[in-house]
Write a protein that binds this DNA or RNA. Structure first.
Length: 293
DNA sequence: CACTTGACCTGTCCGC
DNA sequence: TGCGGACAGGTCAAGT
């Protein structure tokens, strides 16, 4: 579900809401969603204070005063929603919350803070997880050792994008952009949106795309990620912010989920196909398909 | 090694 | 209305 802009939006919300709160209790259902030893929970989670909330790639890091961190991956359908004590508002409430009473049937973990407020980890498909581990060991996770640079960091240049994509020269542009070891945080939505922006067909092999096009892709990718963060991310069905609010980027999307509608650049009907095993949206005129091999 | 495909889960939508 | 199959924004393991 959530890609970089969605996880960033959740992080911004949690960083405003959580630091200083002390964890008083935890409830969870499947070990898959919360794969932590009970002894660690007792010693390093309960009684710990939240110090800082950060993000790397699509992963959230909730740093605790115990020198442990809660590492959270929302995968496809995860949500992290905060509720103050006594708050039970749902859809239609003035705060624009998308979801209702919590916990609900997708709630996998509930953290209760000493002031009565709660953080709910919901995950319909159970792909996501919330893992407690020493903060110092987080960078040693396989995922973090392999993951590529943050596309919005100040020192990430178009040449970096070009060089890293070209490590996957024989694969499609779409597969290369989705590869988290190339660049961190890009998923299906922003891959399609940025490739449309740069007029690159997702099936084009990386080696067949010019440097000029890759420079344009860098501009489009960074712009679309920034816009999406500004709009609070994309809500298709599941995603909500830490406050339970929808993101509005899809209102601005040019091709994603817009099959059958006109291309905003040339008016041709947007089509949906399958590239790299994923639903893929393109303008058949703006994005010229490579010749079949 | 580089690259692709299937598995992990639940819910929803679409066609018959 | 019911049922089967395809599909959904991510990542791994296993396959070619």
């Amino acid at each position: 579900m959530p890609e970089l802009p969605e996880v960033e939006t959740v992080k911004i919300g949690l960083q405003q809401l959580l630091p200083g709160r002390v964890i008083a209790a935890v409830d969870h259902d499947t070990p898959k969603s919360f794969p932590n030893a009970e002894a660690d929970v007792q010693q390093f989670l309960l009684g710990a204070r939240v110090v800082l909330v950060t993000r790397r790639a699509k992963v959230l890091l909730i740093e605790l005063s115990s020198k442990y961190s809660l590492v959270v991956h929302l995968k496809m359908t995860g949500q992290l929603v905060f509720r103050g004590e006594g708050e039970r508002f749902g859809a239609g409430h003035p705060n624009d919350s998308l979801i209702g009473e919590l916990p609900d049937r997708s709630t996998r973990v509930t953290l209760t803070f000493s002031d009565g407020s709660k953080l709910f980890f919901n995950d319909q498909r159970k792909f996501g997880w919330m893992r407690l581990m020493p903060t110092s060991e987080v960078p040693n996770l396989d995922f973090f050792k392999k993951v590529g640079p943050e596309p919005l960091s100040a020192d990430f240049t178009w040449q970096d994008l070009r060089d890293r994509l070209q490590r996957r020269k024989n694969t499609s542009m779409k597969a290369a952009l989705l590869d988290q070891t190339v660049v961190a945080g890009i998923g299906n939505i922003y891959a399609d949106e940025s490739l449309w922006g740069a007029k690159i067909h997702p099936s084009m092999l990386v080696k067949d795309v010019s440097s000029t096009k890759l420079h344009t892709l860098y501009d489009e990718l960074t712009a679309v990620l920034r816009l999406a963060i500004e709009k609070g991310g994309s809500t298709d069905r599941n995603y909500v912010s830490a406050e339970g609010k929808r993101g509005s980027y899809l209102t601005f999307a040019r091709v994603f989920r817009r099959e059958g509608q006109p291309c905003p650049r040339c008016g041709t009907t947007i089509i949906k196909s399958r590239v790299a095993g994923r639903g893929t949206h393109t303008c058949p005129v703006c994005q010229k398909a490579p010749k079949k091999a």
